[in-house]
Structure formats: C-alpha cells, structure tokens
Simulated scan of single mutants.
Amino acid sequence: MVWMQYTATRSQRAATACFFLTGVALIVAAARLSYANIEPQRAKAAERRRVLEAFIRRKLGSDSQEQGPPPPKP
C-alpha cells in the first residue's frame, strides 16, 4: 500500500505549511493567554480559601480547641 500515490504540488505544500503555521500560532497565543491569567486565578482561589477558613473558624468558634460537648441550640 502506498501512502501517497502522487507528489503534492507547490501550492498544496504551501497551503499545508500555512495551515501548520496558523495552528502553531493559535497554540502559542492560547498558551500565552493561559499563562497571563494564572495569577488572577490564583489570587481568587487564595481569597476563597481565606473566606472559607474564616467561615469555618467562625462556625467552630472555640470548640475546635476544647474537646467538650457542643453547646446546646436554643
């Protein structure tokens, strides 16, 4: 079985090269945008974590340090 039965013409090779370079350029642009947005995403995640930890501390109060029974609810 022959992979290609005919050789590509000059215009076909040029089109293939253009498509390949366009794909590479799109991948590079996406990677650049992805790395540019990492720090804001990390900052948001850190803020969410701080808020969640504060919420848990507020809910647990001093019970997290004592091993006694939980206070009764009214």
Rank of each mutant, 00 (worst) to 15 (best):
T22A: 04
S62G: 00
R32M: 04
A17K: 14
W3E: 06
A17L: 08
N37R: 10
A25S: 00
K59G: 01
Q67N: 15
Q12Y: 03
P72N: 08
A31K: 09
S62F: 05
A14H: 09
T7D: 14
A45G: 12
R42K: 02
A8E: 05
Y6N: 11
P72L: 07
R58F: 05
P71H: 05
R10C: 00
A25L: 11
P74Q: 09
G61L: 04
V2S: 08
V2Q: 13
C18V: 12
S34V: 13
G61R: 03
F19S: 14
R58P: 02
E47P: 01
R10G: 00
R10I: 15
E39S: 07
M1T: 13
G68H: 05
S64F: 10
A25T: 06
S34M: 12
V51I: 11
M4F: 07
T9S: 10
F55I: 10
P69C: 00
S64G: 13
E66W: 06
T16C: 02
P70H: 02
Y6E: 12
M1N: 10
F55W: 10
E66L: 10
A15Y: 09
K44M: 13
S11N: 08
K59P: 02
Q41Y: 00
L26Q: 00
F20P: 02
R49T: 10
P71M: 06
E66G: 06
G68Y: 06
V24E: 00
T22W: 08
Q12V: 14
A25Q: 05
L33Q: 05
A8W: 12
S62A: 07
Q67F: 11
C18Q: 12
V51P: 01
R57V: 08
K44Y: 10
Q65C: 13
G23T: 07
A14Y: 04
P69N: 04
A43M: 01
A36H: 02
P72A: 08
R58C: 01
K59C: 12
A46D: 05
P70L: 15
L21H: 10
A30N: 07
Q65H: 14
A45S: 00
Q65I: 11
M4H: 10
P69W: 01
C18K: 15
Q12T: 12
M1W: 14
A29D: 02
R42H: 03
P40A: 06
G68Q: 06
A46M: 15
P72Q: 12
R57C: 07
I56Y: 02
R48E: 02
A46I: 12
T7W: 08
A31T: 14
T7I: 15
R50W: 09
M1R: 14
M1F: 01
